[in-house]
Write a protein that binds this DNA or RNA. Structure first.
Length: 414
RNA sequence: GGAGGAGUAGCCUAGUGGUCUAAGGCGGCGCCCUGCUAAGGCGUUAGUCCCUUUGGGGGCUCGUGAGUUCGAAUCUCACCUCCUCCGCCA
């Protein structure tokens, strides 16, 4: 959520941002609703003041100057409605892009800012990860579709060991960097989900909503880590507060019918190790760059070729002010595909969640939030299988993961 | 799921229809006294919104929402959360 005061004072900037993000929000209507609300609020407060004056005098003098209870009630009701209407629209207003983010119309305007690693030269026709994984009995989507439907998968055997190796490797690396490990709830309240700003602009479509219990399944642990400090005031000394979370993630993939239908690249449920930080206003961009550097370090240590893409305005998403993706090389597709993403959400999430920090002078500010992928397990396993396949159909395990897999070097048929 | 209890400012707590415009303690902050494992004294210490001539004025918030009343922290109802016990359960 943006600051309504900021919108009142800078309507043109906000309109520009909506346009740049390709999100249709009627800012003029919002301001009109806001004015209406303020007018009603003033009248309501006036009547309440009158009520207080009346009830103060009454017990002493016994005479009651008249104020209309019905009138107050009417105004209170109208004020409440006007506020509700205004807030509904206010929540739709996206965060402003950071100054260094390029204006762009679509993902075609995203900018590749760095490419790392040599694409493997196999000397044979590389196979698709699913073919390899099925022949090695690592992934089973056929039976998963029997049990659960489309877009699900079983990870089996060494793929499972790989998952836990990746988790342990990420945890070890990030704990060394001062991150606190956490396993968060995968079900969160409607309030928490709203606070993270993922329900606006059709976001509701993307999430599993358990209406009977009024809970949402989280699409990423960002959604359960952010609200941890809802309505709290942290002190500046404890910032940045960094978490590394492991959780299953659930996504309806409603807007991606027909896209990546094969295998486990795009599924309704996957596990992810996620980084999250609460920072000061001054440090959030620095923290965001740091998150990107950690993501690169993790991928580099595995040895997967990748590139870094800086998102243009239209590809930022609602809460983000700035966003990078890491795309890993997928040989069978001859393409880089997204495996990591890191966003700086400035105070957009914190305002809604009411998370603040006290600076050295005791002054309170809204906190800034930064999130980023450490490993999206499924996609990382895909990249590993594809890039480290050998001619005989076996898979070489990256050195750094071997200690977590009892020294195993290779996944082979035997 | 059932029975009982509780929810008051950062934390702990007082409070039974109108001086509650919420007392006190702890913690924090400032100053004073002192002078070495310190102790004490004085003061200060919630958030949020609106208006403003920038002096200030006003509203709301005692878990949340409704109700009763001229007036609600206080009475009524519903809901939420936590605690205790019971039931079920990995």
């Amino acid at each position: 959520m943006l600051d309504i005061k900021f919108i009142r004072e800078n309507p043109e900037k906000v309109k520009e941002a909506c346009q740049a993000k390709k999100e249709e929000v009627d800012v003029d209507r919002l301001l009109k609703l806001d004015k209406k609300y303020l007018r009603l609020l003033q009248k309501t407060e006036e009547l309440r003041h009158k009520r207080r004056e009346v009830s103060k005098k009454l017990p002493k003098k016994g005479t009651a100057p008249k104020y209309s209870k019905e009138e107050l009630k009417k105004y209170e009701e109208e004020t409440r409605k006007a506020k509700e209407e205004r807030n509904k629209l206010l929540l739709e207003v996206p965060n402003l892009p950071a100054p260094d983010v390029k204006f762009g119309q679509s993902e075609l305007d995203n900018e590749v800012i760095r490419t790392w690693g040599k694409k493997p030269d196999f000397g044979f026709e590389p196979l698709d990860y699913l073919v390899l994984a099925e022949s090695l009995d690592l992934i089973d989507v056929k039976r998963a579709s029997k049990v659960s439907g489309t877009r699900f998968g079983y990870l089996k055997n060494e793929a499972v060991l790989l998952e836990f190796a990746l988790v342990n490797f990420a945890l070890a690396t990030l704990i060394k960097e001062g991150f606190q490990p956490v396993v968060p709830p995968a079900l969160i309240s409607e309030d928490s989900m709203l606070g993270m700003g993922y329900l606006a602009h059709g976001g509701e479509e993307e999430t599993y909503h358990l209406t009977r219990d009024r809970l949402y399944l989280t699409g990423t642990s960002e959604q359960s880590i952010g609200p941890m400090y809802k309505d709290e005031v942290l002190s500046e000394e404890e910032l940045p507060k960094r978490y590394v979370a492991f959780s299953s993630c659930f996504r309806r993939e409603a807007g991606s019918w027909g896209k990546d239908t094969k295998g486990i690249f795009r599924v309704h449920q996957f596990d992810k190790v996620e980084m999250f930080a609460f920072t000061t206003q001054e440090d959030s961009i620095k923290e965001h760059d740091y998150f990107l550097s950690l993501e690169e370090k993790l991928v580099r240590t595995l040895g997967i070729p990748y590139r870094v893409v800086k998102m243009c305005t239209s590809d930022l998403g609602n809460p983000a002010a700035r966003k990078f993706d890491i795309e890993c090389w997928i040989p069978s597709q001859g393409k880089y595909r997204e495996t990591h993403s890191t966003s700086c959400c400035t105070d957009y999430q914190a305002r809604r969640l009411n998370i603040k920090y006290k600076d050295k002078n005791g002054k309170k500010h809204l906190i800034h939030t930064v999130n980023g992928t450490a490993f999206a397990i499924g996609r990382t396993i895909i990249a590993l299988i594809e890039n480290f396949q050998e001619k005989d159909g076996s898979i070489l395990i990256p050195k750094v993961l071997r200690p977590y897999m009892e020294g195993k070097k290779k996944i082979t048929k035997e």
